[in-house]
Nucleic acid binder design. Structure first.
Lengths: 206, 206
DNA sequence: CATTGTCTATACAGACCTGTATAGTCTTTT
DNA sequence: AAAAGACTATACAGGTCTGTATAGACAATG
């Protein structure tokens, strides 16, 4: 029984590639990409290192796949889904982001934003991993922009960028120990929404 | 002439310790602590590795000294000084933070926040470097809290924490490529100031 | 002059990193 | 049964990392 040497091994029922991806996700999202070696991913997944390298020819490929998976699981399946489940009106969906964050920040295994981590751990702005992280941050921005547009905000792009500043700032604040960071950011978001003048329920434009 | 193997060597006129500190500052602030080895600091400073280890018994000691220096040079001598130079009234000093940031974000060697970097690169919340980074973030918070109090804000602590969310969020946004992040955060700050109701002379209007 | 303290230069131990070589197992397909 | 493909296990090459050992240079102080 070739189990992982440390941590909880990934389910053996899944395909080899899926086991690699799951282990990389758990480890990279928690410790950052630089902070985890390929041997650790191999051990944690229960997949031999040679097999891992057959699926991903380099650690960089694995890292890029991890960021794509993070976008799938975190951005789309979790954040966007939760936001859309919790509210219908665009403006309220924007605010719901911080309700979702609030729950996230209070989880004992809160791991902060993988995209911000990947961004900050590469000083070269043309590093593929850093560029990919920027792209995934752009995906979140596009989602916010779309909500802002639907909410009737004039400068949807500028609004979305301000919203993302609130989101990223609250993540760092939460990781620095402020568990109420989401509530604080939501207050700021409410101010921004009020100032931007949405056509939510009141059609009057500011 | 034992010069540094790479990059620009630190001035030889300074004391040995000062040369170490300067090199560590330049390298750690740009590439993060994990991203720079002791050999690189040694080469860049022109100080032999053995001498370096006599001044700092471990890399962790060097890292903690770097964070202290960052607080000296960045937080106090730069951010606070610039803010206090640019405005007198507390509320305007708070807003001036983002004018200072705007200049910072536009520098070609903008390196983002060393405290956030140190925070995100350590997943163990009890790691000394991460705890130190949290402490230095707390120093900035205290400065903001004091300004908020002087501005007559009721919940000075909550206000300061919200202000710091804006600051950290704008830093990440700028590092992700949005050079106007400071201006956007300043707008949000103006909204927050208006909502908090300061005893300044003129209220910022949105 | 001799001693002491600081700094240098080099080499190295031991750990970990990415990536590969090799040989063997197990399953599926033909 | 034979062949092919996927996976495993181990070992290792070559690099980097932190930290130390060793031997010597240089300056200040006694």
């Amino acid at each position: 029984m070739p189990d992982a040497k440390q941590g909880k091994p990934v389910s053996r029922l899944a395909s080899t590639r899926e086991r690699i991806d799951r282990a990389a996700y758990e480890l990279f999202s928690r410790h950052g990409i630089r902070g985890v070696g390929v041997d650790t991913v191999s051990a944690h997944s229960g997949v031999a290192k040679m097999t891992l390298y057959k699926h991903y020819p380099s650690k960089e490929d694995l890292a890029l796949a991890f960021l794509r998976r993070r976008e799938d699981l975190w951005t789309r399946s979790w954040l966007q889904q939760e936001v859309e489940r919790r509210a219908l009106a665009p403006a309220e969906r924007l605010l719901a982001v911080f309700d979702v964050f609030d729950k996230w920040f209070r989880r004992p295994d809160f791991e902060a934003c993988s995209f911000a981590k990947a961004l900050l751990e590469n000083s070269d702005p043309r590093h593929p991993v850093r560029m990919a992280a920027q792209g995934h941050i752009g995906t979140i921005l596009a989602f916010l922009r779309q909500l802002a547009k639907a909410a009737g905000v004039k400068d949807a792009d500028g609004f979305a960028r301000q919203w993302q500043i609130l989101m990223m700032g609250s993540v760092i604040a939460a990781y620095a120990g402020d568990r109420d960071a989401a509530r604080r950011a939501k207050e700021l978001g409410a101010l921004l929404l009020a100032a931007a003048g949405t056509r939510s329920r009141d059609q009057a434009q500011a």
